[in-house]
Amino acid sequence: MEREVVLFIAASLDGFIAKEGDDLDWLHETEGEGDNGFSEMYESIDTIIMGKKTYDYVVRVTDTFPHSDRKCYVFSRFEQGSNGDVEFVNEDVIEFTKKLKQREGSKIWMVGGANLLDAFMKEKLIDEIIITITPHILGSGIPLFNAPNPELPLTLLEVKRYNQFAQMHYKVNH
């Protein structure tokens, strides 16, 4: 059985995942509830993949890397090897992920960023989408999805409310 790739991400009501300049401060302005469903998703995965800009952001805003308890791959054109917390991957994103999906293990969390997500969408590599909508209309910024994308039929599995956040959980019908 092939492993599934999960997109767990927050977006504004108008579909942006960051303001111009990769600003994510607006996400912390909203009153949520608990960890807004993060723990439940995190328990279902054993592997994390992210782009280098996302990794750099996580390292910049945290004292210690928060995902050292999971296998974590960071796609980078320049970094190589491992630093103890993550393994840097210089090979083709799509081919690497297809091979990763064939390995034993639990689900894979595709953290972001936008370029990595765009490649995954165009290649239909996302199997579940858990999107948390924030009560913001940003007007501009980095979009959740870049057109054009293939048409993907979805099945809504669950809708949850975390105070001011609304979370929708979809299964992609490949």
Rank of each mutant, 00 (worst) to 15 (best):
R3Q: 04
V6R: 12
V6T: 15
L7Q: 09
F8R: 03
I9C: 06
A10Y: 02
A10D: 05
S12D: 03
S12A: 08
L13P: 10
G15F: 02
A18T: 10
A18H: 11
K19L: 15
G21I: 07
D23M: 01
W26K: 08
L27C: 14
L27Q: 05
H28M: 14
T30N: 02
T30L: 01
E31Q: 07
E33P: 08
G34D: 11
G34T: 13
N36R: 02
G37S: 06
F38W: 10
F38C: 02
S44P: 00
I45S: 03
I45R: 08
T47G: 05
I49R: 01
M50D: 02
M50Q: 04
G51N: 02
K52V: 01
Y55M: 03
D56R: 06
Y57T: 15
V59L: 04
V59G: 04
V61L: 09
T62M: 09
T62W: 05
T62Y: 06
T64C: 13
T64R: 12
F65Y: 09
F65I: 01
F65W: 08
D69M: 12
R70Y: 15
R70D: 13
K71W: 07
V74W: 06
F75I: 12
F75E: 10
S76G: 06
F78I: 14
E79S: 05
E79Y: 05
E79A: 06
G81F: 09
F88C: 01
F88M: 07
V89Q: 03
N90K: 10
N90W: 10
N90P: 07
D92L: 01
E95V: 11
F96R: 00
T97M: 01
K98E: 14
K98T: 10
K99R: 11
L100Y: 09
Q102L: 10
Q102T: 08
R103Q: 11
R103E: 14
E104Y: 10
G105S: 11
G105M: 11
K107T: 04
I108M: 06
W109S: 11
W109C: 10
M110C: 12
V111I: 14
V111D: 00
G112D: 08
N115S: 09
D118T: 15
A119G: 02
A119Q: 10
F120R: 05
E123D: 12
E128Q: 09
E128I: 06
E128C: 09
I129G: 07
I130N: 00
T132N: 00
I133T: 13
I133F: 15
I133Y: 15
T134E: 12
T134F: 15
H136A: 04
L138A: 08
G139Y: 01
G139E: 02
S140R: 15
S140A: 10
P143H: 13
P143K: 12
P143W: 13
F145D: 04
F145A: 11
N146S: 14
N146H: 14
N146V: 14
A147E: 15
A147N: 14
P150Q: 13
P150D: 12
P153Y: 11
L154N: 13
L154G: 14
E158C: 07
E158Y: 14
Y162G: 03
Y162N: 06
Y162A: 05
F165R: 04
F165G: 05
F165L: 08
A166K: 08
M168L: 00
H169F: 14
Y170M: 04
K171R: 09
K171H: 13
V172L: 14
V172N: 06
